[in-house]
Design a protein around this nucleic acid. Structure first.
Lengths: 370, 370
DNA sequence: CCTTAGCACTCTCGTACTGTGAGTGCTAAA
DNA sequence: TTTAGCACTCACAGTACGAGAGTGCTAAGG
């Protein structure tokens, strides 16, 4: 039972997994011998395969089919067998160039990160916007659109901007609006929601002369906007690369009836997972609390719907304050080395970009730097 | 040959289409007689069906299958047979309520419009943001994030906001930034891109004393930002409701082999169409130039990839200046009355909402108004 | 002339059966 | 310990067949 993992067995396990990842078909003993010019016969390989199966790293779908890695097999591969590579310098340069094209536009970074992850890892990707735990107010601008409509531009620390229109009870001049905005900005500068609420609650008397009905209304709106914005931010997950993932063989039905049916079902499920974000909901906070690249393989997920998928995640951001999560999701049969190096590279790239937005924070250096 | 369209034939055509839209299975003569209590036999119906087939409104997949509408059949139905309904008041109220929840947030309107269209019409939806043909500058705000990083908030007419960060060569105080922003805002107010360019090119001498290197740099950035923003806006198509569309029977494979395969293929195609926006690219400008609800059915599309789909589109917006397009896309077997009334309602709702943002423009009144 | 009952014909769909090929597991010998 | 040999298993594709649905046509009836 308790067979040992000889050098040869490790090697066979490794090539079985690599082979399966590449071809998506169960791998046979004979084939390994031929393709890799192994110095021993297929019967020997079969014996080894049987042992690896006993150890739980491989399985059989049915008696006369080739071997397929189990989740445990992938886990072992990721932990002990695969070589840690980096993206090629050419790829790195190309990616950096794309980010350079949209310099200065945070929203675009996120979109681009998703697109690049998907294309590079040939799987779906997910990116959450970088967010501080709590929004910190920085500045408010009020711009009259017409007599009864005002555009409020709220700026928060970290270059986060939110716009919101509202119609005040009484018309106000541009000058009035500017003054009001200035007064409010001065008083709320650098505060979080709860601090804003505190200030308003406690200093009501002192503020009364400065803040009329209009200003009170605006502040209420600011609080409301910050609250909903924080809530949205917590849940917001950009996903991309659906098509890339769907071009994986798992989703391309062979000619047999039930496989086609299963493929459609898988497809629909995958869609639901990506669209709703259910399935990796809990993964995000978990990843936010970790360092380095996280890999969650198939059955290791806590949700059933995810047990056919693996996720490669990494935190990115500056220091411990403004962070987001990005990663790749795909079938458990995934090119882990590539996914991992992609996620690692993009996350450090994004960290660097964000670093430029924040002064005085520690700034990790990206491989092959910018 | 040149058979006439008697009252009875029209009625039969109508119920055939309604039946097929509802059940997604070819409709048989016997079944019509039973279900609709027709006063004549199935043989008679068969004769009539044959005539309608001669006229090009129906087809046969093979000899012994029920009738299926052709594109021409749907077209005739939409034009002459279907009764124009409106969404129920309850639905209208529910939808208005949802929009009320996100009042003041233009981005959310678009997202919500897409979601509501999809859910109500049970198909995919597409929405382009409302855009003026040309951005018109309104206001610029410069906010220092730290010594070497400045956040620029550009506000355009129509409440459109764009943010952009950049790092100036030399550090500047908050007061400096405000003054620069003010000067630039004053000079560029209400201008389009080309006008901005003109001003800069022609008034170089006069402006020289006011605008130093820093201001020139900022203005260049503003021009660049406006350009890319306009380009992006032209191409931007939000789509939603992929899942709703995919729950249509067209995408749910029956148990037969080739059908399953075809379903997967359809699915993949649909995805590509929605993701890339190819396929209805030309439809958008076309819809922008038209009034009312446009229906494009199957083979009427100019692209082959779209010939299995129908699109129901409408322009929305204020006057002729700030407009967008929204609509529904799904299999040609579509509940046209419902899709059309949904699109009609949402488009007038969006027009109304936008109307509040623009003073002095004509403002069409939405059914059951807000 | 329109309607309809009757019936033959066509085509799909599901099932059952079969041969083939790939690949394993085991055994016995080297 | 390795390996040749072989029986065994199982998916897969092709074929055949019966059942069922629905049409188209024809001939009779109003």
């Amino acid at each position: 039972m308790a067979a040992t993992l000889t050098e040869r067995r490790l090697f066979i396990l490794k090539i079985v997994i690599q082979e399966f990842v590449e071809t998506a078909t169960p791998v046979a003993s004979e084939m390994l011998v031929r393709k890799y010019g192994l110095g021993f016969s297929s019967a020997t390989v079969r014996n080894e395969l049987a042992t690896l199966e006993d150890l739980g790293y491989l399985t059989h779908l049915h008696t006369s089919a080739g071997r397929v890695p189990t989740d445990a097999g992938y886990r072992f591969f990721v932990e002990n067998l695969m070589e840690r590579t980096s993206l090629s310098l050419a790829e790195q340069r190309m990616i950096r160039h794309q980010f350079y094209q949209v310099r200065g536009e945070l929203d675009q970074w996120i979109q681009l990160a998703g697109a690049v992850l998907a294309r590079t890892a040939q799987n779906a990707s997910l990116v959450t916007p970088p967010r501080a735990e709590h929004l910190r107010f920085k500045n408010l601008e009020l711009i009259g659109i017409h007599e009864t409509m005002v555009l409020a531009v709220l700026v928060f620390h970290g270059g986060i901007v939110k716009q919101q229109t509202f119609s005040p009870d009484t018309a106000r001049s541009a000058e009035d609006l500017r003054r009001s905005a200035g007064r409010i900005s001065d008083h709320l500068a650098d505060l979080t929601i709860s601090q804003v609420e505190d200030v308003i609650a406690h200093d009501a008397q002192q503020l009364a002369p400065l803040f009329g009905d209009f200003e009170r209304g605006v502040i209420d709106m600011v609080i409301h906007a910050m609250q909903t914005f924080e809530e949205q931010a917590r849940e917001q997950i950009h996903s991309d690369g659906l098509l890339e993932m769907l071009s994986q063989p798992e989703f391309i039905p062979s000619l047999t009836r039930d496989d086609a049916e299963r493929a459609v079902e898988r497809l629909r499920r995958a869609l639901e997972i990506l669209k709703s974000g259910r399935g990796f909901g809990q993964l995000i906070p978990q990843a936010l609390a970790s360092e380095g690249v996280q890999v969650i393989i198939g059955g290791e997920h806590s949700e059933d719907e995810m047990r056919e998928y693996s996720v490669v995640l990494a935190r990115y951001g500056v220091g411990g304050t403004v962070t987001g999560v990005l990663g790749v999701i795909g079938p458990t049969r995934m090119a882990y080395p590539r996914s991992i190096s992609t996620v690692r590279y993009i996350s450090s790239l994004m960290s660097n970009l964000l670093g430029d937005l924040y002064a005085g924070e520690t700034r990790p250096h990206v491989e092959g730097g910018q």
